[in-house]
């Protein structure tokens, strides 16, 4: 009984730290003026999301999140930011414009809607979650699902990645024409 209580307190503590790190770094990504700092804050966001996935007993997704996002995608982001040079832009400079006011209103309306819907549903259906088996979220569980029920999604994902790789190569390739022949925009 005492062990269970200590375990619950520990889970809550980890959840609170991860959730607030997630929210704080999310706000930091949007509000930093330097894109480099925003990308670094997004790495923290992805790491704390991986902790939340672990608390939801989705070990494989958490590992994939760290490998794919925090590893590959963010390295690419940082490389491109370093390539085109840091362009600072402060989002709140120059007083509130009507665009900023409208954007804040739209985003907060979205947030209020989501919270209200969750609050309406939370009383009944969201209160009791199912019990999960021991292998839930393990690599063998996800792999079995991918290769049995969701084989089509698996193959389509591979085709999407292949097309994106080809597109990236084409977009990033140097033009064969000289620079002065490129029509100015």
């Amino acid at each position: 009984m005492i062990v269970a209580t200590v375990g619950n307190v520990l889970v809550w503590a980890v959840w609170i730290v991860a959730a607030f790190a997630c929210l704080g770094s999310g706000v930091a990504v949007v509000s930093f003026s330097n894109p480099f700092y925003s990308a670094l804050a997004l790495i923290g966001n992805l790491g704390s999301l991986a902790v939340l996935y672990l608390l939801l007993s989705s070990e494989f997704v958490a590992a994939a999140q760290v490998l794919v996002y925090a590893g590959a995608v963010m390295v690419m982001f940082l490389f491109v930011i370093a390539y085109i040079g840091p362009r600072t832009e402060s989002p709140w400079a120059g007083g509130p414009s009507w665009q900023a006011v409208g954007a804040v209103l739209a985003a907060s309306a979205l947030l209020v809607e989501i919270i209200v819907v969750i609050g309406l549903k939370a009383g009944g259906r969201l209160a009791h979650s199912h019990h999960i088996g021991g292998s839930f979220g393990s690599p063998s569980y996800v792999g079995r699902l991918f290769l049995s029920d969701h084989l089509l999604a698996f193959e389509i994902t591979s085709i999407v990645l292949l097309v994106a790789a080809i597109g990236g190569v084409i977009l990033g390739a140097h033009s064969r024409r000289a620079t002065d022949e490129v029509p100015p925009l």
């Binding site: 889970v11 809550w12 959840w15 959730a19 997630c22 929210l23 999310g26 706000v27 990504v29 949007v30 939340l52 608390l55 939801l56 985003a107 907060s108 979205l110 947030l111 989501i114 919270i115 969750i118 609050g119 549903k121 939370a122 969201l126 209160a127 979650s129």
Partner: peptide, 16 residues
């Protein structure tokens, strides 16, 4: 923490 707590974090992330 229950399902609603996680969903609130998800909604906040989406709004941000």
């Amino acid at each position: 923490p229950g399902t609603a707590w996680y969903l609130s974090v998800a909604g906040f992330l989406f709004a941000v």
